[in-house]
Each structure stands twice: as C-alpha cells, then as structure tokens.
Design a protein around this nucleic acid. Structure first.
Length: 425
RNA sequence: GGAGAGAUGUCUGAGUGGUCGAAAGAGCUCGCCUCGAAAGCGAGUGGGCCUUUGCGGGUCCCGUGGGUUCGAAUCCCACUCUCUCCUCCA
C-alpha cells in the first residue's frame, strides 16, 4: 500500500510510476477525487460530534442539578440522526478509497531498469560454466521417470495435472534439499527457522499483497475465508502484523520451509511437463524485517544468501535485475536468480528476491519504534526464495545426469542423502 | 460437537450508563539525590485520522462488527479468539 499522503501531495510522481509499469492510472484518479470528498465529510461529521459531546456533558450537569433537559435532548436527537447519515456516507467512501489503495502497485526504486517485458530485464551476473554434454541431455521429467523417482502419472490419477509423486531417492532428494538449505541459512546466514501454518486467512493474504487483486491465483477453501498459502512469505510476514517492534529487535531474519499452492490461473499450456510449474511445490523462503535505512543492504545480503545455495550445489546461474514491467505488484526492487537447465538450453527462475520497502508493512501494519518514546514507523520487508525445491531437483537431475541415465549427487548434498553419491536404476 | 469462563494501554489489573483514553502497580524515559549505582523522591510515558505555518484544536479506538441512548469500556445482538471441563481424534 502506498502512503495516501504521497498520492495527495505528489500525484504526478505516482502517475509516472504507474505509466512506467504499464499500469492504468484510473485507480489513482478515482482515489484523489474520493479522498477529497472523504475529508470534507470528516470535517463536517466531526464538528457535529464535538457539539454532541459538549452538549451531552451539559445534559449530565443539568440532570444532576435537577433541571429539565428535554429541549436539548430533542435537539441532539436530530444531530445524532445527521451524524448517522454522514457516517454512513463516510463509510462507503472510506471503503472505496481503501480498496483503491490496496489495488495500487508499489513505487519502483529509482534504480529499476526501464522496460515492460521480461526481455528487458537486465542481466547482472553469470556464475558457473554450463556443463558440456557429449550426449543429448534429457529433460528432468524423463530422467526422473526412467529412474522411477518421480511418478507423474500416479499424481495425475490421485489428484490431477501439475502434481508430482516422489518416490525413493527422489523423495529423499527433496527432503535433503530442504534440510540442506535450512541448515545453511540458519547456521551460516543467521536466520531463525520457523514453521508456519500452511493455511492463511484473508487478512494475511491482503497484508502481503496477494489480495484483493490476485484472488484467482490462490486456492480458497470452500465455506471458509481460508487460503492455501501460495508462499511462506504470507504466513511469515504476517507474524508481526499489527505489531510495533522495538528498534533493538531489528533486523529480524526468518527462514521457513513450506509447501506452496498456486492455481496457476492463466498459465494453461505453459510448462505442462515436469516440475517447473506445479500446483503444489516445496520452497525454502527467507523473510527479513528491517529499518528503512538498512533495507537495501539487507536485501543485497539476502540475494547473496540465495546465490550461496546454488554455488554450493555447483549449479550455474545468472542474476537478473527486474525491469518495471516484471517487478510484480508489491516489489520496489527485485532480482531474480535463474538456474541453468541444459535440456531447455536456457536459464529458468529458481529464486526471486524482493525489497518491498514499506509497501507490505503499511498493508499489514508492521511498525517499529526508532527509539523509546519516538513515533512508530513502518518497517521494510524483504523476502526471497532460498530456493524453490522442485526446480532445484529439476536442475540437479538435468545438470548432473550421466550418459547411462544415472544422476550423481552434488558433493554438498551427499551427507543429506545418507551417503548416497549417485541415483541409478 | 456439548457446557462454562474470559478478551481493557508495554505488562499485571480496576472499572457495570455521564466528570473514563481509562484507577492502581510494574516497566520505560527524563530530572533530583549519589563519587557511581541501587533505593528513594518528582515529572512524563498509547495509536489512527482530520485540522493548524507553529503552539494547539477536534474526532475515533477498552477483541471485531452492528444496535439501544442526548450520552456506552459499561446495556443488547452477532461473530472471532483464548482458557477450563466433557466428547472425539493424529
């Protein structure tokens, strides 16, 4: 959510930002108009309330003194009706302005590259050499099926398309990666491990920006106001919703493993095979709460924390600076990390690291007190995958595949695989 | 699922129609005292919104949302959450 004062005082800056993102400015215009009306109503109704309050005091005094107060009581009855009427109108105006605020995307950071499509993201860095294959590399779903470690047909029967059923070394590999990543982030990067609920309520989804605009992307539980969490970002960020932290508590580093559930509405036909785009996938997510002063420093550290995982696994990747159009709804700044997939002969997103500045904090009302007695300010929130597990499995299978169909286990992962160094038939 | 109890400020906790944004204590901040600290003493100590150049002023908030009333933390209704007992259950 943007600061209403920013919209009021610098509408042109906001308009420019929306244009850069390729977004309509309708919501902004409607907001500005209604916001004016809102303040007019507020002044009017508050004056009436002030009058009612003082007169009510007088009623109390008169009654105590045994005087008759019927006349002014009658008059106040009318004032009360008028207040009710104005309050009603105020409520509808406020509901609408609040909704409009919730629908406006974040202001991009000044360093965000120009551009509306993914081709205009700026490649910052490449790490690792894609391996040269002296045989035709297979896609990970073939490798996995041939090895009998993932059964996509079974998942389709049990549930439907875009689900996976892991078996044997495949299931073990998934679990190993979760533990491996959590261990690195907790013991080397200073994160506190948390295990949140996988189901969240509407307020939490709104707090992170997944609602109200993107309800069709989420799985909603029937007859409830609960959603399957699309990412650990939702439950973990909302841990501090409606709270005021002390400056000493910051920065907070949380890392969480959760499954993630996404309806993938609008993705029909894309990445239909394999692990790349599933309705349910596992992810290790890093979430930080910081002061505004430190947020970009902390964000840069978080990006490198994600990179560390790929480096330890010796998986080649590249880092992208996301342009206006690919920033997503809530981010002020975003870097994606893409892992090399040999069969597709391309890099695919495996982590997305965003600085939301105070956008989520404002929605979720997460504040801190810079010092004792000072006014509370909004924290900055930062998060990023560290990493998406399913896509990491895909990358390992493809990058570590052998001519005979077996897959070697990255050295760093061997202890987590109970000493297993190779998956073969 | 059944029965009951409860939800008040940073915390504990009082308050059952008006003088209550809210007693008291704790905590915290500042000052006095002290070589320094503790103790003691004194003062201060919530948030949102609107308004104001500023000082300030106004309004709303006692779990949430409605209602009654000239006036609600206090009365009524619904909901949410917490706790206890029973039932069920991994």
């Amino acid at each position: 959510m943007l600061d209403p004062k920013l919209l009021r005082n610098e509408p042109d800056r906001v308009r420019q930002a929306l244009n850069n993102r390729g977004e309509s400015t309708e919501a902004l215009d409607e907001f500005l108009e209604l916001d004016k009306r809102r303040r007019e109503l507020l002044v009017e109704v508050e004056q009436l309330k002030a009058r009612r309050n003082t007169v009510s005091q007088e009623v109390a005094k008169m009654k105590k003194a045994g005087e008759n107060a019927d006349a002014i009581i009658l008059e106040m009855r009318e004032v009360g009706d008028k207040i009710k009427e104005l309050d009603e109108e105020l409520r509808t105006v406020e509901e609408r302005t609040h909704h409009l605020l919730l629908c406006l995307p974040n202001m991009p950071h000044e360093t965000v590259p120009q551009g509306l499509t993914e081709d205009e993201n700026v490649e910052i860095e490449r790490w690792g050499e894609p391996r040269h294959f002296d045989f035709e590399p297979k896609p990970h779903w073939e490798i996995a099926s041939d090895l009998g470690i993932i059964d996509f047909e079974a998942a389709a029967k049990i549930t439907g398309a875009r689900f996976a059923f892991y078996k044997g070394a495949g299931a073990r590999l998934e679990r190993a990666l979760i533990s491996f990543m959590l261990d690195i982030h907790t013991t080397e990067h200073g994160y506190t491990e948390v295990l949140p609920p996988f189901i969240v309520n509407r307020a939490s989804m709104t707090g992170t920006g997944n609602l109200p605009k993107f309800e069709e992307d989420a799985f909603k539980l029937v007859d409830t106001d609960y959603f399957l969490a699309p990412t650990a970002e939702v439950p973990v960020t909302n841990y501090y919703r409606d709270e005021i932290l002390t400056a000493e508590q910051l920065p907070v580093y949380f890392v969480a493993y959760t499954p993630c559930f996404r309806s993938e509405a609008g993705s029909a036909g894309r990445d239909t095979r394999g692990l790349i785009r599933q309705h349910q996938f596992n992810k290790v997510e890093m979430v930080k709460f910081t002061t505004p002063e430190k947020s970009y420093e902390e964000w840069a550290k978080l990006v490198s924390n994600a990179e560390t995982i790929l480096q330890r696994l010796h998986l080649p990747y590249r880092k992208l600076d996301m342009c206006f159009g690919d920033l997503g709804f809530g981010a002020a700044k975003k870097n994606d990390i893409e892992v090399w997939l040999p069969e597709a002969n391309t890099y695919r997103e495996i982590s997305s690291c965003s600085n939301f500045e105070d956008f989520q904090a404002r929605r979720a009302n997460i504040r801190f007190r810079p010092e004792a007695g000072a006014k509370p300010e909004f924290v900055h929130t930062i998060n990023g995958s560290g990493l998406a597990i399913g896509r990491t499995v895909a990358a390992i299978l493809e990058n570590y595949q052998q001519a005979d169909g077996s897959v070697t286990i990255p050295d760093a992962l061997v202890p987590y695989m109970g000493g297993l160094t190779k998956i073969s038939k």
